[in-house]
């Protein structure tokens, strides 16, 4: 042992140079360079598809949105020199667009909390029953596998009322039921119906349509919660309400966060359900009072107003980005583990 020590102290071995960060990166790169080509080769198929179907459209959307007066057929004033925010100004200036924005935001704010709370309650209830659990699960899941346009038309039929005054010729089941209690009839969806009534129908529909998926996710989360937490809570005499708020909700909070984020995104992109109820006119009699941002974008397309459509898309994108960021920030604080 003594000898060994001497040899090391004699400095026969040159002292190793301390490596700085740049050198390390360079060394690693040199070693990796052989494999880099291979790596790109393996990536190529996926990358190619991404470039064609994701990156190009994305970049092109920005291009169209920021080129003043872009209309898809001819570029007024020359493409490269006319960058600007004209399209955004136009879009924001439209009365139509403001209506769309108002509708979209209201839809989200109303339907997301309602559907999430309902879904959570139903999921907890489903999780606590044993007999018929599968049956109820299937029943609650049915709306998810049906076509939203078709169901929208059914909702329209349910809420409809055709005719004037006493000369009512036909009305849907909702007005019939309300009639049994001596209420109504109301004009929910037909020509001349109010914006509020339309909104009520659309929100009902969206909540009904959004619940199944949330139940599925939350039920999955609930079933993953270790039963022993509940047993421990029971031993300690925890009340049902306290167990729900202090144990169940924190333990499914990751699922809740996921559900809330995705349903906000879905809510801002709401379109097809409203088409189902009101048709492409997106309002009773095609008056457009229930139009949404995505609906507005689609409306711009046949008019070859690609610039405005792109600008509207980007505004929607920005809104979703901000809301999702807020969601993410809140969940970081509130979601446990």
């Amino acid at each position: 042992m003594e000898d060994n020590k001497d040899i090391i102290q004699n400095n026969d071995v040159p002292e190793r140079q301390p490596l700085d960060r740049k050198t390390v990166i360079k060394l690693n790169r040199d070693i990796g360079s052989k494999n880099q080509l291979k790596g790109w080769l393996y990536l190529a198929p996926a990358l190619l598809l991404l470039i064609i179907f994701s990156f190009y459209p994305l970049i092109n959307t920005f291009r169209m949105a920021f080129l003043n007066g872009y209309n898809g057929l001819a570029i007024v004033g020359g493409e490269s020199f006319n960058l600007g925010v004209e399209n955004f100004k136009t879009v924001i200036g439209y009365v139509d667009f403001k209506q769309c924005l108002k509708n979209t935001i209201l839809l989200c704010v109303v339907t997301v909390p309602i559907s999430t709370i309902l879904a959570l309650l139903i999921a907890v209830a489903l999780n606590s029953i044993k007999p018929l659990q599968k049956v109820f699960q299937t029943v609650f899941f049915l709306p998810y596998v049906t076509n939203s346009i078709a169901i929208g038309m059914v909702f329209n039929a349910m809420f409809t009322r055709v005719g004037l005054g006493d000369l009512i010729q036909t009305q849907g089941i909702i007005n019939n039921i309300l009639g049994l209690f001596g209420i109504g009839p109301f004009n929910f969806v037909n020509v001349g119906s109010s914006w509020g009534a339309n909104m009520f129908v659309v929100c009902t529909y969206i909540v009904w349509n959004a619940i199944p998926f949330k139940i599925l996710v939350l039920l999955g989360g609930l079933q993953n919660v270790n039963k022993q937490y509940y047993e421990a809570a029971k031993i300690d005499g925890t009340s049902k309400v306290r167990t729900f708020f202090r144990i169940t909700i924190p333990l499914v909070s990751p699922m809740l966060a996921y559900v809330i984020i995705t349903s906000f995104i879905g809510g801002f992109k709401e379109y097809s359900s409203i088409v189902g109820i009101f048709g492409e006119g997106m309002g009773p009699g095609g008056n457009g009072q229930m139009n949404t941002i995505v609906g507005y974008v689609y409306n711009m397309l046949p008019k070859s107003n690609l610039g405005n459509a792109s600008a509207a898309s980007l505004i929607l994108f920005a809104i979703i980005l901000v809301v999702t960021a807020i969601n993410g920030y809140v969940s970081k604080k509130k979601v446990h583990y």
Binding site: Y229, D236, T238
Partner: peptide, 29 residues
């Protein structure tokens, strides 16, 4: 019912509430 028996139970995998601190866990009962 278990809550009226005055028993303390330690589970095999402890069943500590993962979202609560040690102090909150002990104070929970």
């Amino acid at each position: 019912e278990p809550e009226h028996r005055g028993v303390g139970l330690v589970f095999q995998n402890y069943a500590l509430y993962p979202h609560l601190t040690v102090k909150q866990n002990i104070m929970f009962p």
